[in-house]
Design a protein around this nucleic acid. Sequence first.
DNA 1: TTATCCACCGCAAACATTTGCGGAAATGTT
DNA 2: AACATTTCCGCAAATGTTTGCGGTGGATAA
Lengths: 331, 331
Amino acid sequence: MGTQATLKKISVQLNLSISTVSRALKNHPDISENTKRKVKELAILMEYEPNAYAVNLRTNKSKVFGLIVPAISNLFYDSFIAAVEEDARKNGYSLIILQSADDPLQESENLKICKLSRVDGVFISLVPDSHSDQLYTKFQESGIPVIFFDKVPGNKLFDTVCMADEEAATVAANTIIKYKKKKVIALFGNPELSITRKRRDAFLKVFRKEKADIQIDLHYCLSSSAAQKVVTEAISKKSKPEHIFCMSDELLIGAMKSINQSALSIPGDISVLAISNGFIPGLFKPEITYIETNGYELGKLAIKRMLENMENKTPVKSIILPARYVQGGSL
Amino acid sequence: MGTQATLKKISVQLNLSISTVSRALKNHPDISENTKRKVKELAILMEYEPNAYAVNLRTNKSKVFGLIVPAISNLFYDSFIAAVEEDARKNGYSLIILQSADDPLQESENLKICKLSRVDGVFISLVPDSHSDQLYTKFQESGIPVIFFDKVPGNKLFDTVCMADEEAATVAANTIIKYKKKKVIALFGNPELSITRKRRDAFLKVFRKEKADIQIDLHYCLSSSAAQKVVTEAISKKSKPEHIFCMSDELLIGAMKSINQSALSIPGDISVLAISNGFIPGLFKPEITYIETNGYELGKLAIKRMLENMENKTPVKSIILPARYVQGGSL
DNA sequence: TTATCCACCGCAAACATTTGCGGAAATGTT
DNA sequence: AACATTTCCGCAAATGTTTGCGGTGGATAA
């Protein structure tokens, strides 16, 4: 316990000054090779490890990033986090992870924790009714980079890393047209979220543009079970839908539960298309055709952007990860 | 930037000493109410926030826990992490998360990072061939609690928090007997892991004990696709199995892919039982019957144990979370 | 009047490190 | 031999906070 090695303890052992020991360990050119050798040997022997707090205090850098998500237990976010953690570590950074539990207050609290922890950078995906604007602008002003991902602020004032939401929705719509589906249920998430709006608008735009004679039943579902309910109701009617589109894994799960409980077969009776992280669609039979939103790759992009931002302040940028169409058997 | 409020800056404004300001903010009885008021007002005005590094340096406490898992992107671990994060925050702690990627070297590295970061406690689930023994015993010796969960060391020298692995496997075996299954495929994970051995041994013990006339085909599968392969092969034979048992979600997914690709129906042609976190079984039709291993609840137990350990050093303890049988339609 | 006590506050050390500056000794240059 | 340069190292300040101890001024008690 009290036997922790410090620069001072090394220095008295060797009759050197603290500063010399410090420099020796850092290969400062001012120190002779001989001294460096002696210092390093003793440092290893005494199992010296620099006190991170003292270093941080002095240098005002923590080598820690904060990562704020609505929830960790989520197929998209957990792979995002995994990617960020990998590359953060490779660059000598650690990750403090905070979940906002879809609560704006907790989100604000999380940003404060990041501030108190004096992180060197923040990754954040916003909760639905976020009102943390002043909080994160303050980070920017302090010169601490904030990278938004997935759920990002509406305006273009910040660094963002997103899926190609419009593109994904456009591909989805075009696919539906291509397959000549005439009666479609479209399930979207919380309409307050920009991600929902982006996907919805792009989706609908295609049909308007193509003047396709297609009946779109658009529903906003805030949960998996809400989606299940909507689909159950829809397929119980006389005029059944031919196709179901889900803008997320969560909604897909709900929809599939409903379909599985019915006697309908995919894709014969009803076809399915989703925007997904890729894990869930593979669990069903047939596998669901989807447009991929890859959390892992997005994480890689986000940390790359962060590191860029660390070394030289670059202008604000919006990065978009292209969508990928993955053929299953549900369409 | 350079305009960060400090105790000193507050003190000069008010013509007080730094120590008085510090004490005033902490409601020290030596300070008059009047002074406290003035100090607190100015502190708010100047947006004073204590410098965590300085505090940590001085007090030698970080209010940070380290959490090391084989992988974040995992249905069990992510809910575990979510639970720990929740309660850690409630108690003023943050969480540094590190993944070992099933690599013993990286695991050791992670423990070193925890040491360097001078965390106040460590949660860790070990990788298969862990050789980090000296590392985490060193933590113990330094008075820093280490809570092992899920994948824990073999001996009884440490604080552990585990699922009731034996019980879960025993319940599974008894269920299989009860349903009079005679030809069973049993899928287990990496046999190097204590969790696998515990479940396997308890599983087999039941059949020996009951002298049941049951044919058990036991397979070790290191991945989801390995499980899929095993099952595909088994059901293609003449004498098909009547039942499949999976000791984990990962294996269940593989098994279900295989079954779904076949013409077999559940539970008519073949029945299924799994040990699972509870999310995956609900995705299939019919829903899979399973014995629950609840990552979230286990996380709650782990953090509780950690906090107990923080305030008063308690003797080493092994905590076990009971298993729960969840009836689906696959059996 | 002097001793005692309390309420309130400041001094200074300590935590471990980094870093600008300066200085002594050794070496090199005319 | 006088001067310049290089090599190597230490002093001390600075980072922001906590905390043991001591001190001051006023009130109360004897």
